[in-house]
């Protein structure tokens, strides 16, 4: 059973990549990119888990309590917010593409220049 979290990670990456490749809509493509990126959170938190560990917050528990790795949690935390902002930037690019070319289909967009 120890391998299940990593299979989940691989599955999320695969689903997202398939979506990106087959997508016919830029917004859908951006959402697929978010799916791929969210696999890193599962991977980070899965890697940092310690059996029987608690969350690394010691407000009301002993500082010597066994806890999961705080570094990967910090990485995932900042990334969630940054990802949201970057997604907004990509969405605004999609808005601009639609206004200029009247389509969100990457296959049709590939035929335009500039």
């Amino acid at each position: 059973m120890a391998i299940v979290p990593f299979l989940v990670v691989a599955w999320i990456v695969a689903v997202g990549l398939y979506g990106i490749v087959t997508s016919r809509d830029l917004i859908h493509q951006v959402v697929c990119l978010i799916v791929v990126q969210s696999s890193t959170y599962v991977l980070l938190l899965g890697v940092g888990y310690v059996t029987g560990g608690v969350a690394p917050y010691f407000f009301d528990i002993s500082v010597h309590a066994k806890a999961v790795d705080p570094v990967v949690q910090a990485l995932a935390l900042t990334d969630v917010v940054v990802e949201a902002a970057v997604t907004a930037l990509l969405m605004s690019l999609a808005v601009q593409a639609h206004k200029r070319f009247g389509t969100l289909d990457p296959h049709e967009l590939a035929e335009f220049k500039g």
């Binding site: 059973m1 120890a2 391998i3 299940v4 979290p5 990593f6 899965g46 890697v47 940092g48 888990y49 310690v50 059996t51 029987g52 999961v68 790795d69 705080p70 570094v71 990967v72």
Partner: peptide
């Protein structure tokens, strides 16, 4: 394996 993270940095 899951739950046996050996990284020393976090510890």
């Amino acid at each position: 394996g899951f739950g046996r993270y050996p990284g020393p940095y976090g510890q």
